[in-house]
């Protein structure tokens, strides 16, 4: 909106600042807590800047409760989920965008339905299915489930990107006698790369952040993903060590934060418009 009134302008800046404090302060506070010694935390003093920077919380967090192993697990699950989801959804997204009719109707319907059903209704039978396939409590099983659950969003985004590629290009390719596969590989795929990268990153973050499915489907502590391990840090009656807990939380946030930093221009430049308009 265009406002030229200086007073309104000032008001806008004040409002913007308020938003930024609200949205950004929690991360700041987490950082601050992660650098406080247990003595300072126990003293109940409330300072944003720690009296003394206790960097030791970070090695301590990494040392405790196999945070590193969990981070490794999370990385493995997220990367493989990202790769598999992207590979699997690419052709399907293309088909959804290019072949109208029943297929498209069914695809869209499923994408919608999958949003409405609560995970709890799925998790019980999913647990049983995985048990039957001997995939319960395995990384592989978790990855398969993550692939399935990230597909709706990925398909939706990708088919938007495909639809934006002019058909003429493909048709021109076909005229030259190339097979559909060649056309896909040589013409569609290169144009799709930026979209693929963005979608893949979203998939990575979704898998990296996921908690509920892992909570039920992974039982062995050595297979815990990062969110599961962080939760065991909190403890109920046990001793809560807030410094290392906060340090672990910061470490768990960094990958997603970096990815969002990379994607931010795309996210805020209005380029998602297509996905919304549907």
């Amino acid at each position: 909106m265009i406002t030229r009134n200086p007073l309104a302008r000032a008001g806008q800046y004040v409002a913007l600042a308020a938003y930024l404090v609200f949205l950004g302060f929690p991360l700041l506070w987490l950082l601050s807590t992660s650098l406080k010694s247990s003595g300072e935390i126990n003293s109940l003093a409330v300072n944003l800047i720690p009296e003394q920077f206790a960097w030791g919380n970070y090695p301590q967090a990494l040392d405790r409760q196999n945070l590193i192993r969990s981070a490794g697990n999370s990385l493995l699950v997220s990367v493989v989920t990202m790769v598999v989801t992207t590979l699997v959804s690419m052709p399907a997204a293309y088909a959804l965008a290019r072949f109208r009719g029943k297929l498209r109707a069914a695809g869209t319907a499923w994408i919608l339905v999958s949003q409405v059903f609560p995970a709890i209704l799925l998790i019980i039978p999913l647990f049983i299915v995985l048990r039957t396939l001997q995939l319960n409590d395995t990384m592989f099983g978790l990855i398969l489930v993550y692939v399935t659950f990230t597909l709706p969003f990925t398909l939706w985004m990708l088919q938007g990107y495909v639809a934006a590629i002019p058909r003429d290009l493909e048709e021109a390719g076909s005229m030259d006698g190339a097979t559909r596969f060649t056309v896909l590989r040589l013409i569609v795929f290169p144009l799709l790369v930026p979209g693929l990268v963005a979608t893949a990153m979203f998939t990575f973050v979704a898998a990296w952040n996921e908690f509920f499915l892992a909570l039920v489907l992974i039982q062995s502590p050595e297979l815990y993903t990062l969110p599961l391990t962080l939760r065991t840090f909190i403890g109920l009656e046990g001793q809560t060590q807030l410094g290392p807990l906060a340090a672990g939380a910061v470490l768990a946030t960094i990958p997603s934060l970096v990815i969002f930093g990379l994607l931010q221009r795309r996210l805020t430049s209005g380029s998602l418009a297509g996905a919304v308009k549907g």
Partner: peptide, 21 residues
């Protein structure tokens, strides 16, 4: 195998039932 008290009952339910105890 280090585990935590928090939520251990629920975990055991799925561990036993899933054959991963």
């Amino acid at each position: 195998v280090p585990a935590a008290w928090d939520g251990v009952y629920d975990k055991l339910v799925t561990q036993f039932n899933g054959g991963s105890a």
